[in-house]
Design a protein around this nucleic acid. Sequence first.
DNA 1: CTGTTAGCGCCTTCAC
DNA 2: GTGAAGGCGCTAACAG
Lengths: 335, 335
Amino acid sequence: MPSMNIQIVARRAGVSVATVSRAFNFPDKVAPATRALVERVAAELGYVANASARTLRTQRSRVLGVVLPTLLNPTFAECLQGIAQTAAAGGYAIVPVTTDYQLAEEERAVNQLLAGNVDGMILVVSNPTTSQALERLRANAVPYVLAYNKHGLHPCVSVDSEGASADVVARLVRLGHRRIAMVTGTMAASDRAQQRYRGYLQGMDAAGLTAPPVLEVPFVETAVDALRHYLAETPRPTALFCSNDLLAIRSIRAASLDGLRVPQDLAVVGFDGIALGQDLTPALSTVMQPNHDIGRHSVELLLKALADGVVPRADASLLLPHAFREGESCAAAPT
Amino acid sequence: MPSMNIQIVARRAGVSVATVSRAFNFPDKVAPATRALVERVAAELGYVANASARTLRTQRSRVLGVVLPTLLNPTFAECLQGIAQTAAAGGYAIVPVTTDYQLAEEERAVNQLLAGNVDGMILVVSNPTTSQALERLRANAVPYVLAYNKHGLHPCVSVDSEGASADVVARLVRLGHRRIAMVTGTMAASDRAQQRYRGYLQGMDAAGLTAPPVLEVPFVETAVDALRHYLAETPRPTALFCSNDLLAIRSIRAASLDGLRVPQDLAVVGFDGIALGQDLTPALSTVMQPNHDIGRHSVELLLKALADGVVPRADASLLLPHAFREGESCAAAPT
DNA sequence: CTGTTAGCGCCTTCAC
DNA sequence: GTGAAGGCGCTAACAG
């Protein structure tokens, strides 16, 4: 059956290949009776149009490339789900590639997808400003949208990481916290991490507080030990703002291992809003991003541009709303 | 640049298209000087061979389809990572499709991938015995390997869910537990769930214990409420065996909401071995499956068959080792 | 409304 | 070691 093709169907139906093609692509440009006949024969033979031949001929593959840091962080898994559903609804398949937060992998990924004839790409890159990969896309006039990244010169779907982070600090301050520390993944590997850190510094500054040294740990490792060491320093912070939910979970683990109670001895706030956070004890207090929607809107932006035969414009960028999700890992400072 | 093709490269290099093609596909069938020239020109022009044209000509796409229930369960995200890495190492791209545990979606997914010219598929299906999708693949002679599923008539990469589950019960019994309950996702949607339940019943039987009614909840929902109701029943179990780690996490949540301490008042054991489980408090006690390796071996089996031009055989199935991971969510029964 | 035909870009025999 | 040419399966003019 894999060798089934339009010619065989045409012969069996007693029509020309053009008619078979039209019956599928422009059903109303074919007589109802003929169409029914073709459809019946095609169904009998299990015919499905060869995607490669169609792509070669039309120069459209109906495939979108997706470049993500990792799927092991539920944030991106949730986003990818939004991407996949929206793409499928629009008749597009997706080819995801992960970079593990490695710059070199970003370029490899883009090249691979470029060679794979994708119609467009959704990417989460380390840093849009310095990205060679994006440069490559621009040079090739490949339509793309960035997810999570935020940059004035590229089409992006993101949230206000900076503002949200400053708000978190303000909230902690209202709860009576003064020694508010921050822990983040490798900042060089993520503009979001940089934005969140900047927001944190702004929040501290606005409250007239001095920020203690930030703890920076690799994205991929568990780093519970580093967190324990960090928390063992005196004066110990009363609140910890974590640049992402996985770090928050590990921070809670580290605190527990050292006999600290969360939130009584240490308030912990995350960032991302992964669904799992709500099922933990204590439930994670976090900045909830609409991960699914970030994926969905990214695809919608891209598909609209594809339909119009243009590349998405930077000024079509979307800033989606975030929200603080009250959990149990964050409470007032000890008095 | 997207319109770059072999002809342009050939002209620019002053050779024929055949030579360019050979320079890339059979480097040693071309004079070193010629090859260097072609490579230089191609690099300058940013030429990459058109995947669709190559696929159409060679009848090989170097793409693998992957059918999974969901990526929101880290089990499958971890597995997909193994799949992606191994596929990439072998020069294959992947197209993942999720089914959300819906039977109808399985067929849709397979049809979509079939139309997409994949060279083979890795699948996690609900039930290999009754799967229309697998029948479709067999009829079309499409090479495939099942992951997690276990079935004598299909090539599978799995673990001994049944044995592992019986062992969990035996372990709980050794810890002094008598009222050991089980909670599972919808069994009709997963042969693994069925196997794990069967193993649980065997373990109970072997210990001369009566199994209380099992709690069956949908895979996709959180179901913390259902769990709370279940745990409120008297006599309350002293140990809970959960068919997967997400359920275990939610069970711990449900217990906490009812003021039950884990593991003192309720021992909880999961199944899957998701990495996150180790960072929770209490750390999850669970049956660790080699999720990454399940993905890796599935691809290796598939690629070997592709290389040999055959479909993977059922008797090439792999049963990978599992291990009990000692966490903190499981302890001796109260005396 | 339907048929004929030219190529999309590539690989691969077959000559040379 | 290299070149010429056919055809993979499909769609889109163009005729009829």
